[in-house]
Design a protein around this nucleic acid. Structure first.
Length: 136
DNA sequence: GCCAACGTTGGC
DNA sequence: GCCAACGTTGGC
């Protein structure tokens, strides 16, 4: 069981869209590092769902439902992949970037260290802290 | 609107 | 293979 953080611009695809859809293809990733992370996702892994842009907060959680397979919207020869994720939880309190930055234990999270990466691994500890802040 | 931090492209 | 120019993401 591993933990991830995935980003989306809410005007493109928000967690409310995932609530409505129940599950979705996590496609459109066109960055090698992010793609490599997608390939490491296992069924049942937890993904924190982060809104970039105006919200700048972890909004909730999704579960990996299907492991990586070719991104239907990409040229097959280029090897881009997608996974399927299912809605898991909507946080009562979105965990803002400012809140994450204020937490010393979260200082190493790639969200802060490498702000442009859109699919990143996080540790169990980092997950548990954000989950705790969000669900209450 | 600007800028930092990348990633990509193309000339050499 | 190097590097300048350019494009993109995302925070401020």
């Amino acid at each position: 069981m591993a933990y991830w953080l995935v980003k989306s611009e809410p005007t493109t695809y928000s967690i409310n869209d995932l609530v409505r859809d129940k599950s979705t293809h996590w496609d459109g990733v066109r960055n090698y590092q992010a793609r490599n992370n997608l390939k490491l996702m296992k069924k049942g892994d937890i993904c924190l769902f982060y809104h970039s842009g105006d919200d700048k907060a972890v909004m909730g959680e999704a579960l990996v439902r299907r492991e990586y397979y070719p991104d239907a919207k990409a040229d097959e020869k280029e090897g881009w992949v997608m996974v399927d994720v299912a809605f898991e939880a909507l946080y009562k309190t979105p965990v803002t970037l400012a809140r994450i930055k204020a937490e010393p234990i979260l200082a190493d999270i790639p969200l802060i260290r490498q702000s442009r990466l859109s699919v990143m691994p996080i540790t169990k500890t980092q997950y548990e802290i954000i989950n705790q802040l969000g669900k209450n």
